[in-house]
Design a protein around this nucleic acid. Sequence first.
DNA 1: TACTGATATCGTGATTCGGTAATATTTTCT
DNA 2: AGAAAATATTACCGAATCACGATATCAGTA
Lengths: 115, 115
Amino acid sequence: MAVLAPTPADALALKAKLFRGFADPSRLAILECLREGPRTVGEVVRLTGLSQPNVSNHLQCLWDCGLVQRHRQGRFVRYHLSDPRVAALLALANQLLAEVARGVYQCTRYADAQR
Amino acid sequence: MAVLAPTPADALALKAKLFRGFADPSRLAILECLREGPRTVGEVVRLTGLSQPNVSNHLQCLWDCGLVQRHRQGRFVRYHLSDPRVAALLALANQLLAEVARGVYQCTRYADAQR
DNA sequence: TACTGATATCGTGATTCGGTAATATTTTCT
DNA sequence: AGAAAATATTACCGAATCACGATATCAGTA
């Protein structure tokens, strides 16, 4: 009784982990870059202004999670979103933000903007 | 040059913050509860097995962010999702998970399941 | 007013996560 | 083979966040 919603605990942990993939400004910046098409690591570094190890780390993370795919092209590695739903999630988040932005901004429960 | 993707940094931070609202197993459990309709705090506590202060905290967080709304009914407070897009995001995440679950599970960059 | 049930708030300990710096690895070119 | 460019890996530190327990607040009722 009590315990356990319709979805088992493991599935929830997994979904939370998926959302965490999107819950970081650096990773979001990288995903935004990739929304417009495939990019090499160097391009992402230039476009985002993030450090190279940082980008590489996050790309690895996104790759582990299956959110992006990659091909080696010569000495470059080209990344792209692995599924249209990744872009769809980002788009939906934007729509939602258009309505609740102020609330999210003011919420003091966790990290303030400007990292 | 370099710096700044199409979306300004603030917007990214904000979007990251929004996703963080979804990036916790407890909050997800609560949101799942609310997907099926309005619930009082006590009902959510019973359905999720989480402690009452914990539920109350997370509900406050979700409310601050504008993801849920609430009405007082006698000595109960009834919460519900504030926008169908919240449910849509959860649904999309489920679809995406169906394809990348293994990757997410194996990704060791951050939190393992079983909290 | 005193009492009970429902929900909110606060302080704290423990854990987790992200950025940076230094370095390793891989690939191409000469 | 040797060098240079592109990308990946590792370790460490600081900051942020979650759960828990105790307690406060608020609404209804006797």
